[in-house]
């Protein structure tokens, strides 16, 4: 920490790939660095079963392992990780006051890398059966569906990837897609051919999750072409319909967001508040990949160093 009071050089919000990568750089520049994480160290990447496209791992790497390695690498150079949530940020000129679940903390620069959370469908039964048949994390809860039937909702990369992962357990999966085509990458769509137990239903909306005795029994959808209701008997539902930016805590900070709630930055990855930077999935214009998140984290670290040099 800097000599005056207890002020960190850099406080990072969220310990996903973007922050952990950034912290490797800031700590090696001798900038005291603390990261606050409210969930999993390693971020969304750690909740992903297998990552095949992160450079440097010829055979791929498990999400958990990558998160663990990133954590150890950042800690090796002195990054401090606190398990707590950031609730707000206030700019008081020379430094920022960051309120957290463990009290207020001061830092000269802030990096926001809070990524995003799973979107909910907002249909009847979804909240009622949450964790009792409705799930958003396959690597967490898939093991309860050994030899069972499942419904997976969504047509993007996450839905396809997670449906394939769930075949480790389930004997049949109905993959329900609202549109008339996948939004997943060609490689993944191609891969799907190897999983005959996954049945794809395009042009189908997911309308209701129905259960009895506290367990899910079926999903009711509508075939948009025929207008007919369709029943999907199932033991559970996994929903992967996209992500919502984790920017709710910035409501009263004056930090500028775009129309979907992602953080706007300039070419230095700096927000409209000087000294507050942003990297990774939560940044407007980000490409939502681990490789780009770690790249942005490194860039942000170097921009932060410049900012601190100018403003100390």
């Amino acid at each position: 920490m800097s000599e005056t009071e207890d002020i960190w050089d850099v406080l990072m919000v969220g310990a996903g790939p973007a922050s952990l990568s950034s912290a490797i750089y800031t700590t090696r520049e001798d900038l005291s660095t603390v990261i606050y994480e409210k969930g999993v160290i390693g971020g969304l990447a750690s909740t992903t079963d297998w990552i095949d496209n992160y450079p440097g791992f010829a055979e791929g790497v498990s999400g958990l392992e990558l998160g663990e390695q990133l954590q150890q690498q950042a800690e090796r150079f002195g990054a401090k990780i606190e398990l707590g949530e950031v609730l707000g940020i206030k700019d008081v000129g020379k430094y920022k006051i960051i309120s957290t679940t463990d009290g207020d903390v001061k830092a000269r620069a802030v990096l926001i890398s809070t990524g995003s959370d799973y979107k909910r469908l907002g249909i009847p039964g979804e909240a009622e059966y949450y964790a009792k048949g409705v799930h958003y994390c396959a690597t967490c809860d898939g093991a309860f569906y050994r030899e069972k039937r499942l419904v997976v909702v969504g047509g993007g990369n996450s839905a396809v990837q997670e449906a394939m992962f769930l075949t480790k357990y389930a004997i049949h999966i109905d993959l329900i897609i609202r549109g008339d085509k996948f939004r997943a990458s060609e490689v993944l769509i191609h891969e799907l051919d190897k999983f005959p137990m996954i049945k794809v239903h395009m042009n189908t909306t997911t309308d209701e999750i129905v259960g009895s005795d506290g367990k899910v029994t079926k999903v009711v959808g509508t075939n948009k072409k025929t207008g007919k209701k369709v029943d999907f008997p199932t033991d559970g539902v996994f929903i992967f319909i996209g992500l919502l930016p984790n920017t709710g805590f910035l409501k009263d900070t004056g930090i500028e967001l775009d129309e979907i709630g992602l953080i706007k930055t300039d070419e230095n990855l700096e927000t409209n508040i000087p000294g507050v930077f942003c990297a990774g999935d939560v940044r407007s214009g980000a490409t939502m990949q681990i490789a780009s998140a770690t790249g942005e984290g490194a860039t942000a670290a170097l921009k932060i160093r410049k900012y601190l040099e100018k403003n100390s």
Partner: peptide, 9 residues
């Protein structure tokens, strides 16, 4: 479970 990141936490 083996793959559950929240369990690790």
């Amino acid at each position: 479970t083996n793959t559950c990141a929240y369990c690790v936490m």
